[in-house]
Amino acid sequence: MTPQESAGGRVLPVVRAPDPVLSRPGALVDPTATEIVQLAADLVATMRVSPGCVGLAAPQVGISAKVFCVDVSAHPKTRGHHGTFVLCNAEVISATRNEKAREGCMSVPDLTGDVKRASRLVVRGFEPGSGAEVVLEAEAFEARALQHEIDHCDGLLFLDRVAGAHALHARKTYL
């Protein structure tokens, strides 16, 4: 296995704003299609080699499709989680208890922003490969990550959700 491959997945370059793919709604996909199963593996491999990354969506690797992965298990803000998972064609079924918190994004590497999102969430999507329907209940940090990635699939960045310039911050760099 080369450094650019991981468990069947390839590490892909991450596109940055203002790349137009980031502002286009992604296409619905067939979760059983071979190329979608490969994309799922590629997203996970790319997320794994990216320090601090807890989720990655297909538009962030230049593919306009409704596919993303999430894994918040190692993040210090995580309370509960579902481990590593990939969802296709995900949608929010219910969302409650809005809270504001700071977010960052690999596609917007120099900024973070204060974004209000639901802290309890129910999401429905489909597993790549089997195509099985999945319904996830998420809270707190994992709920925020899910909403962030679903936004990517809908052509939105966290920048579209901040209240204004006062809610944007230069990303801190730790040496």
Rank of each mutant, 00 (worst) to 15 (best):
K100E: 14
T78Q: 11
V92I: 15
C53D: 03
V49T: 14
A90W: 09
H82R: 13
N89R: 11
V54M: 12
V49A: 13
V54N: 13
K100N: 09
Q38E: 04
L56R: 06
H82G: 04
E91A: 14
M47D: 05
G104S: 07
L39H: 06
I93S: 10
A41N: 12
G83Q: 06
E35R: 13
C88A: 10
K77W: 09
L39T: 03
V72H: 07
C88H: 06
A65L: 06
V92H: 11
A57R: 11
R102W: 08
P76I: 00
V61H: 01
V72G: 10
A57D: 05
A58W: 01
P59S: 02
A101R: 13
H82F: 00
V37P: 14
D71T: 02
G104F: 07
A101Q: 13
V92M: 12
I93V: 15
R97Q: 13
A45L: 05
S64F: 02
P76V: 02
A95H: 09
I63T: 10
C88T: 03
G62V: 00
Q60E: 01
T96Y: 12
P76N: 03
G80R: 15
T34M: 14
V54Q: 12
S94H: 10
T96D: 15
L43F: 00
V67I: 04
A90E: 09
G80C: 12
N89Y: 03
A57K: 12
H75R: 05
S50E: 14
V44C: 11
I93M: 14
Q60G: 02
G83M: 03
F85H: 10
K100G: 13
A90H: 06
I93A: 10
R102F: 07
Q38T: 07
N89M: 06
E35D: 15
L87D: 06
D42F: 02
G104K: 08
V70H: 08
P59T: 00
A41V: 05
L39P: 11
E103K: 13
N89D: 07
K66T: 01
A40D: 03
H75D: 03
N89P: 08
H81F: 05
N89G: 03
R97Y: 09
C69L: 04
V72A: 14
A74V: 05
V37H: 12
A90T: 00
T96A: 15
A95N: 09
S50V: 02
G104H: 07
D71V: 01
A101M: 11
K100S: 14
R97P: 05
T84Q: 15
Q60C: 02
G83W: 01
V67P: 12
A58T: 00
V67C: 07
H81S: 11
A101H: 14
A57F: 02
I93R: 15
V37Y: 12
G55I: 01
L43K: 11
A45D: 05
V61G: 03
S50T: 15
E99I: 06
K77G: 08
A40P: 09
L87H: 09
E103R: 11
N89Q: 06
V44R: 15
G104M: 03
C53Y: 02
N98H: 14
S64G: 12
D71E: 05
G55V: 00
S50F: 01
P51H: 06
S94A: 12
R97A: 14
P51A: 02
E103D: 06
S94R: 14
D71C: 06
I63N: 10
C53I: 02
Q60K: 07
R102V: 09
G62T: 00
G52M: 10
T84V: 13
